[in-house]
């Protein structure tokens, strides 16, 4: 029983005492998602697999873009985006949904949003392992075969764990913040879903970050500001980094696309995010996690009174 004036470290120790419950909560989320069957796992992967096939077909045959494997570039960011979206939105009502339990039994309440985040992380890793990585293996094998030269992913792929940790900190921070807020304001999840839907267009999934930097249609005076604001969004940095870490440049040079359609001038794309921006983003994700954790803990004793 943590005391009212409990410190940050005491809160963490108390949560650690309940780690077995955390494991059970994560397992329960996955049991529910997979409906207790191996077919359940297959079903939950059917959606990402179908999505991958459709995206690849569309960008191969319907919207041909002059970047080799453009569909794969989209896919590399799409599953991390889904992880973000479901991770944040699933967790938003993780406490509200369990109010009958919260009202009766003591346990560290932060375990609820954290368990949802970890369950989504597990599912994301599964998607990565079953859909994304095999797809890349096929792609690199095909390139090696066509060009009679071994084609390998970029060395940055070794930083993938860092990227996943950074994204998970961001998701957990937002999950803690939103799940606490949703107890007091029951439309929080709904509003978060609306905002997340809009955010889809503000992150580089269907375009490259370099296209924002060189957006000639924007007045030159504000282009720099827009680009800076754009890079201050951690999800922009995270998605651009997934793309850069997973997809190699053909022939060792970045692919190029026309600056404006039909014009000869081109820009290099999939350059990734400059390292200082990457580090700043990591710091921001950590700060968002700490903020979310403190926000949650400062309010968790009022949950029962609010509902």
């Amino acid at each position: 029983m943590a005391q009212p004036s409990s410190s940050f470290s005491a809160e963490i120790r108390e949560a650690w005492r309940y780690r077995e419950l955390l494991r059970t909560l994560v397992r329960r989320e996955l049991d529910v998602r997979y409906k207790n069957s191996i077919f359940g796992v297959a079903w939950s992967l059917a959606n990402p697999i179908m999505r991958a096939i459709i995206l690849l077909l569309v960008f191969q045959y319907v919207i041909p873009i002059k970047v080799p494997n453009y569909g794969v570039h989209v896919l590399a960011t799409f599953f991390p985006w889904t992880y973000f979206l479901t991770g944040v939105l699933d967790a938003a009502d993780s406490v509200s949904k369990q109010m009958p339990l919260v009202r009766k039994v003591y346990f560290p309440r932060e375990l609820l949003p954290i368990a949802t985040t970890l369950a989504n992380l597990r599912h994301f890793l599964l998607t990565l392992g079953v859909v994304t990585i095999p797809l890349l293996v096929v792609l690199y094998a095909r390139d090696s075969f066509i060009h009679h030269r071994l084609s390998l992913p970029p060395a940055e792929i070794l930083l993938l764990p860092v990227l996943i940790i950074m994204q998970t900190l961001l998701i957990a921070g937002l999950a803690l913040f939103l799940s606490a807020l949703n107890v007091f304001f029951e439309d929080t999840k709904f509003l978060a879903a609306v905002i997340a839907d809009l955010l889809f267009y503000a992150v580089p999934i269907i375009y490259f970050i370099e296209q924002v930097e060189h957006a000639t249609l924007l007045p030159e005076s504000i282009r720099g500001v827009v680009h800076t604001l754009f890079l201050l969004n951690p999800m922009v940095v995270i998605l651009a980094s997934y793309r850069r870490f997973l997809i190699a440049w053909p022939d060792g040079t970045p692919p190029r696309i026309p600056l404006t359609p039909g014009q000869p001038e081109t820009i290099a794309v999939n350059l990734g995010v400059p390292w200082p921006w990457f580090c700043l983003s990591f710091a921001m994700c950590t700060a968002i996690f700490i903020f979310g954790y403190r926000f949650f803990n400062a309010r968790k004793w009022r949950f029962v009174e609010a509902a």
Partner: peptide, 10 residues
């Protein structure tokens, strides 16, 4: 605590 009917049951 004896829980309410169904509390914590999924």
């Amino acid at each position: 605590p004896l829980l309410e009917v169904g509390a914590g049951f999924h």
